[in-house]
Amino acid sequence: MAWCTGGAQGYFESAIAAGADAFVTGEISEPQAHLARETGVAFIAAGHHATERYGAPAAAEQVAGQLGLEHHFVEIDNPA
């Protein structure tokens, strides 16, 4: 399984070459939809918000902990 929070352009092909059976990403474009059908690799476009809402707070927590900073993640629902 491969995962890319942002766009799939360029990374989906690499995941296929590496032997991934599934690819999860934040966005899809028409070429990736066709490539998924042609190769039989599952392609899950879960949306940017859904795939990025955990990484940003985790990175902020790590940096804040190392530097002794306070941080707040503002959750704003976005269906995209």
Score class of each variant (00 low, 15 high):
residue 45 A to S: 11
residue 54 Y to F: 15
residue 38 E to K: 15
residue 25 T to H: 00
residue 38 E to H: 12
residue 25 T to S: 01
residue 27 E to Y: 10
residue 39 T to L: 05
residue 44 I to C: 01
residue 33 A to R: 15
residue 44 I to R: 02
residue 38 E to T: 12
residue 25 T to I: 01
residue 43 F to I: 04
residue 37 R to Q: 13
residue 26 G to F: 05
residue 33 A to C: 04
residue 36 A to P: 00
residue 29 S to V: 13
residue 43 F to V: 03
residue 50 A to C: 10
residue 32 Q to D: 11
residue 37 R to H: 15
residue 37 R to P: 07
residue 25 T to N: 00
residue 51 T to N: 10
residue 49 H to A: 05
residue 39 T to F: 10
residue 28 I to Q: 02
residue 29 S to R: 03
residue 44 I to N: 00
residue 52 E to F: 07
residue 47 G to F: 10
residue 45 A to M: 11
residue 41 V to Y: 09
residue 39 T to S: 08
residue 43 F to T: 01
residue 25 T to W: 02
residue 29 S to Q: 10
residue 40 G to D: 13
residue 31 P to R: 11
residue 47 G to E: 00
residue 27 E to P: 06
residue 42 A to H: 07
residue 32 Q to F: 05
residue 35 L to Y: 09
residue 49 H to P: 05
residue 29 S to L: 10
residue 28 I to R: 00
residue 47 G to T: 01
residue 43 F to Q: 01
residue 26 G to W: 07
residue 41 V to E: 05
residue 49 H to W: 06
residue 43 F to P: 04
residue 52 E to H: 09
residue 36 A to K: 02
residue 27 E to L: 15
residue 32 Q to L: 12
residue 24 V to S: 03
residue 52 E to Q: 08
residue 26 G to E: 07
residue 52 E to K: 04
residue 45 A to V: 03
residue 25 T to E: 00
residue 26 G to I: 03
residue 27 E to Q: 10
residue 52 E to Y: 06
residue 30 E to N: 14
residue 49 H to Q: 11
residue 29 S to A: 11
residue 25 T to A: 00
residue 43 F to A: 12
residue 52 E to T: 02
residue 29 S to T: 10
residue 48 H to L: 08
residue 28 I to L: 04
residue 42 A to T: 14
residue 50 A to D: 02
residue 33 A to H: 09
residue 35 L to G: 09
residue 27 E to C: 08
residue 51 T to Q: 06
residue 34 H to Q: 14
residue 53 R to M: 14
residue 45 A to F: 11
residue 37 R to G: 14
residue 46 A to L: 06
residue 41 V to M: 05
residue 36 A to H: 01
residue 47 G to W: 07
residue 35 L to D: 12
residue 31 P to W: 15
residue 26 G to M: 10
residue 30 E to H: 14
residue 25 T to R: 01
residue 28 I to P: 01
residue 42 A to M: 04
residue 45 A to H: 06
residue 54 Y to W: 15
residue 34 H to P: 03
residue 33 A to W: 07
residue 25 T to P: 00
residue 31 P to N: 13
residue 50 A to Y: 06
residue 37 R to K: 15
residue 30 E to M: 15
residue 24 V to H: 00
residue 51 T to Y: 02
residue 54 Y to Q: 14
residue 40 G to V: 10
residue 39 T to A: 13
residue 53 R to Q: 12
residue 37 R to F: 14
residue 34 H to Y: 12
residue 50 A to L: 05
residue 38 E to Y: 10
residue 50 A to T: 03
